[in-house]
Every structure is written in C-alpha cells, then in structure tokens.
Amino acid sequence: MNFTLKVWRQANAKSAGRLETYAAKEIPSDASFLEMIDIVNDHLEADGKEPIAFAHDCREGICGSCSMMIDGVAHGPVKGAATCQVHMRSFKDGQVITIEPWRSVAFPVLKDLVTDRSAFDRIIQAGGYISAPTGGARDANEILVAKSDSDSAMDAAACIGCGACVAACPNGSASLFTGAKIAHLARLPQGQPERYKRVELMVAQMDDEHFGHCTLYGECQAACPKQISIDVIGLMNRDYIVAMATKTPDMAGASGHG
C-alpha cells in the first residue's frame, strides 16, 4: 500500500512546528501504524535526514507511550486501540494521513510527536496511591473484596496513562485519567481510609496543571484505548463533594489548598 503522510515536525518545545509531507511507499497491509513510520524513518535515516521522533515502547497497547492524533482523532480510527495497535489495513490505499502530537497546554511538545506528559505523574504524586509502606501487610486473604468490586476496580485500573482522554477533550480536561485512579482505589476496601483526602488533593493538582474543566462531552471515553467509562468521573465528582462537605481544618492544612 502507498500513503501520503503529513507529519508535524517541531525541533523543540520553543520552536514553531509545521506539517511536512512524506511518501510512505510499499507498506504491507499487515504492518502496524508504527511499523509504517519505522519504514519511513529507515529511509530518512539512511539518507542522513532526521527521523520523525515519536514515543513508543511496548507496541501492544499497554505502556501508554504511543500518542498520535491521526487525522484529528486520538490514536486513530480503531476503537479501543492505542496507536500501536492500529494496522494499515484500516486505511485505504493512496490515502493522505495527517499525523500530529497530542494537543494540550498541559502536554508541551518536546519534539515532533513527542510530548511531555509528566503532569500525569504529578497528579498521582498528589494522592494516587494507598499508603502501605513495605512490610507489615497482613495476610492477603484477610481482606475480602466482593468480586464485583474487584472487577470494577480493575476496569478503572486498566488506564494506561497515555493522555488520549486529554487530547480528545475539547476542554483539555484530565478528568478521565484522574477519575480512573480515584475510582480504582475508592472501589476497594483498602482505599477507604484515604478516600476523601485523595480526591481533594488529586483534583487540586489537576487544576494546578492547567488541564481544562470537564463539561461531560464524553469524547474522552470514546478515545480511550481501554474504553474506561466516564462513570469514573461521576464517582470522582461525588467523592469530591463529600470531601468538601466533610473537610476538616487538618486536611485543609495538609493539602495546601485550604
């Protein structure tokens, strides 16, 4: 198959970028989208031209590295798939394909298609964990968890932290990402002691990182390669209200946002 690619090239965070045109020739239909770019890059490199920089690693939809807007759609045309899981058989021979990085003020472009998503790590740092220092844990089977709770916690925990939700959201909100972690931990008995403090701190951090506000467009859910449901945002919002209503002076001090 042959394609014409229009690819966003940008030297670094400070410089302006532009779309450049490349021919992708003789691409097998079984090749993945990233393998198609590999082929283009091999030619560029052999000619001494800088290859297209893009984030990738596992190439099986689990590490959350790959992150491309393909014809304006986060991760491209296949539902429930990350960019690395899209194959060229999903495109028409001769098609023109536009490839851009995630677009969000919270994810500055580092080079070409590579963005800085460290804001996600900082949201987790704010409270996306259960405090359980190593050692001293009791026997695992002493904590009973109803299968349905465990399953729904796992549904939320499946998030790969790719950022497609932010890229797809007209407001650039990180609510699906943040809500997924909050829901994962809130649905388990182990997550209860820190439940309300967690939501308060994580939401505050999300606001500090210049993500937009959620107005429930639902685009995030549609773009999510793990098809995480926006129910997690509902849970986050409810817990946030409870957290605010029951906030003690001590917690306000701990959060730094009182």
């Binding site: 964990y129 259960i130 359980a132 190593t134 465990s150 182990q190």
Partner: peptide, 12 residues
C-alpha cells in the same frame, strides 16, 4: 500481601 495492601486488584 504487600501488593494487596497497595490495592492491586488481583482476580477474586
């Protein structure tokens, strides 16, 4: 034990 304490959602 450690992982369950952290909230790892093992199958049940």
């Amino acid at each position: 034990d450690q992982c369950v304490a952290q909230g790892v959602p093992f199958a049940r």
